[in-house]
Nucleic acid binder design. Sequence first.
DNA 1: TCGCACTGCTAATCCGATTTAGCAAACCTG
DNA 2: CAGGTTTGCTAAATCGGATTAGCAGTGCGA
Lengths: 353, 353
Amino acid sequence: MSRRRVTLADVAKIAGVSPTTASLVLSGRGRELRISQDVEQRVLKAAAELQYRPNIVSVGLRTGTTRTIGFISDTVATSRLAGDMIKGALEAARERGFMLFIGETEGDAELERLLLQAMHDRQVDGIILASMYTRTIRVPKGMAAAPAVLLNALPKQPSPLPSVIPDEIEAGRVAAKALLDAGHREGIHLIGAGPGRRNVPPGGSVAAVERLIGIREVLAEAGVKPAGGHVCPDWQPEYGLAATRALLQKERPRALICFNDRVALGAYQALDDFGLKVPADVSVVSFDDHPIAAWMRPQLTTVALPHYELGRKAVDVLFTEIGRDREDDGGEGEVHRVPMPIRVRESVASPGA
Amino acid sequence: MSRRRVTLADVAKIAGVSPTTASLVLSGRGRELRISQDVEQRVLKAAAELQYRPNIVSVGLRTGTTRTIGFISDTVATSRLAGDMIKGALEAARERGFMLFIGETEGDAELERLLLQAMHDRQVDGIILASMYTRTIRVPKGMAAAPAVLLNALPKQPSPLPSVIPDEIEAGRVAAKALLDAGHREGIHLIGAGPGRRNVPPGGSVAAVERLIGIREVLAEAGVKPAGGHVCPDWQPEYGLAATRALLQKERPRALICFNDRVALGAYQALDDFGLKVPADVSVVSFDDHPIAAWMRPQLTTVALPHYELGRKAVDVLFTEIGRDREDDGGEGEVHRVPMPIRVRESVASPGA
DNA sequence: TCGCACTGCTAATCCGATTTAGCAAACCTG
DNA sequence: CAGGTTTGCTAAATCGGATTAGCAGTGCGA
């Protein structure tokens, strides 16, 4: 709690030059502005000796850029899922010398407004507005003041903001393909949504709609018709359990595509209740790669939500956005889709086995 | 991306006063400096109309205070555990109008140094250095530059920094008491550490040592001797499984105190393998309240790590620290212990049942 | 009526950088 | 050798507030 920070003036004094010259040298513009080698060396040496570091607050005031970005998430920014997203963003930001402000709105629009203000008051260079599950959101007014990106969310109304979301359609394709590749052609049931395009849970979950599109597409291409589909009002274990039980009372499926891992947990239990083995009797493939997927026995094959990559990508996109508005300012609300990788574990086998 | 921010000068102009006056009024010092009611109202009105908000970067430059604190954690700041800690810190900070910078060192001392620098470059008002599991840490040099608090960590060498840690000793007492209260007196086994004071896993985990102290204290007071103890090299399910299996081959315990929930998970499996029911045959109490504790069947009674409260407390302590060093600067490295509440679920019953 | 205290406000300075405008010396050129 | 260019560097303004010093105007006592 003692020694005053070293300032540019200190460096200049030691080097025997003006602060202007020191600034020029240290910002790398010395060469272009014809500062002599000798002076340049003196300044560099002085800066190194004093361990000079520019005060970013000061730079921020003068230049308006604080090398800082704000990360606001709607709900618990700090669940395991969100954590990985933040981690990705954190690392991508750090690689560019940026720091992250974190904020949580808890779904409260007023809080969201306050956080946006607080961040703008601190002159952030850009803002990432994240949702914990993929969905459409109303873009708050305060967003226009700085470059911004929607993460895991699409704008409800048309907006110039770019979005970064998981590629759920491709995920649907991958899940379906995993079963086809294992040799499944019949008795493929959907748990959580489907079989029709419009059989999705209420609430406008993007995941339901898009996963279904991908699944249907691949099955259709292979000439396979899903044997059935079961919408769950919410993707929780108890609904997965109930839906699968109901199914098992009528027929014996060969494979289940569960719409997320919690539903799959319920399905596992139902299968167990009916004495069916995974994957020998019934293959199961799912989505999300929730931590429980690796805890389940047999371990669940699932198409992962790439939270870490989503976070990284959001920062990447934000930087192009920051770069952009110095030149033209024509954002077009592009949507960036991040691939969802499948985690092959133990829950899929060929139907013959 | 358009309208310039409203500045104090704008407000002053509209109100027809000097920026000085406007500043005085808005910082609440108008009264004491004899600004007339009339002028005060004009300034307030103008500020409200223009929706004026002070630029914190500017204030930071002049006053040195940025209403910002840095939160650095050693490992994955973004695991579920860390998440709650951050959430607690976030909310406590927000309540005072502060924002949080987040940083992750991943155990890398060099990265830690860089993060500290980056935060000091941004003039944070204070720093929270957090560990993901309770342990002693070497306090980095860069800490002296601003008020700081250790969270979930104790300084390895004597240090003036205050610490905030969970009250593991009391947790040990509470766990033991839970069994005593249920009527257990015999066949109480410790899985993970013990029974002797020095039977702890390598690595210097604070939790092992302190939980053991609390457990032994309460049992001793009740005149009860633990029937046995089993050190696990690491508190993972497989070791809990192995230790419990080994135990069951020799004798039949009536109650287990597992040193964390993952160990308990392994113990559950071993008990199941031997056909023993929880809690009818064997009661189990554990520590951490890891998310799996609520997933396990029967649900696990466990003494919770209060991550959220730890985060809040760290911010509280940091603020007294920030307040302190304006006056005297005598920090004394106090240790603040946060209570660990027991989550009573289904895994403890009376031995008679 | 002069001098002093008080009231009510403002000019000027500062924080630590960046950036613009410009100056003195050396160097050409005709 | 006067006049223009180039070289190499610096003074001063700026960002948006907080803070210090101080300045008019009024009231009042002597």
